[in-house]
Simulated scan of single mutants.
Amino acid sequence: MKASHQETVSEDLAIQQFIDQLDALQPCAQQQNTARFQKMYPAIERALSRKVSQKEVVSHLEKMDLKLSIGGFRAQLKAEQDRRKECGDVLPCSLCGSLLPHKSHTEKGSSLATAFNNKDLHK
């Protein structure tokens, strides 16, 4: 049996309404915050590499409607660092050219520490 033209049109309209409803859905607040953090991540890493305190960064993020505790900030930062590392999306430091985030200066193998240790200061 063939469906009537009217039934087909009615079904097409119902499907289109469903598609429109799906298109109108927005991500939850947490997903929006994650997306916002990802967009700001390069600037966050640059600030941290300049020794801006995490507390100060969190305070500025709050002004951008991204409310995070220090612990939440650290968790979000680590998650984004891991995600970018996995994707090969690394950032160079604008000051020294090494990859961000900088390793601890006391940690052996740190790009910045190595640069200072290898610098010929006897010239």
Rank of each mutant, 00 (worst) to 15 (best):
L100S: 02
V9M: 13
T8Y: 13
R84A: 02
I44R: 00
K67V: 11
A24D: 04
K78P: 11
Q38P: 12
T106L: 14
D20C: 13
A115G: 11
R50F: 12
I15A: 07
K78V: 12
A43N: 08
K108S: 14
K78M: 10
T114N: 14
Q54P: 02
K63T: 07
A115H: 08
K63S: 14
T8E: 10
I70C: 08
L99F: 15
N33P: 05
P42A: 03
T106H: 15
M64I: 08
K123H: 15
K123F: 06
Q6D: 13
K2H: 06
S69A: 06
L100N: 01
D120F: 00
Q38W: 01
K108E: 08
P92Y: 00
S98P: 05
D89A: 14
V58M: 01
K78W: 07
C28D: 05
E80S: 12
H5V: 14
L121G: 02
M40T: 04
Q54N: 00
Y41M: 01
Q21A: 09
C93V: 08
Q76D: 07
A113L: 12
Q6G: 09
A115S: 04
C28Y: 13
E11H: 11
Q81I: 10
N33Y: 01
K85A: 02
V58W: 06
L99D: 09
C28Q: 11
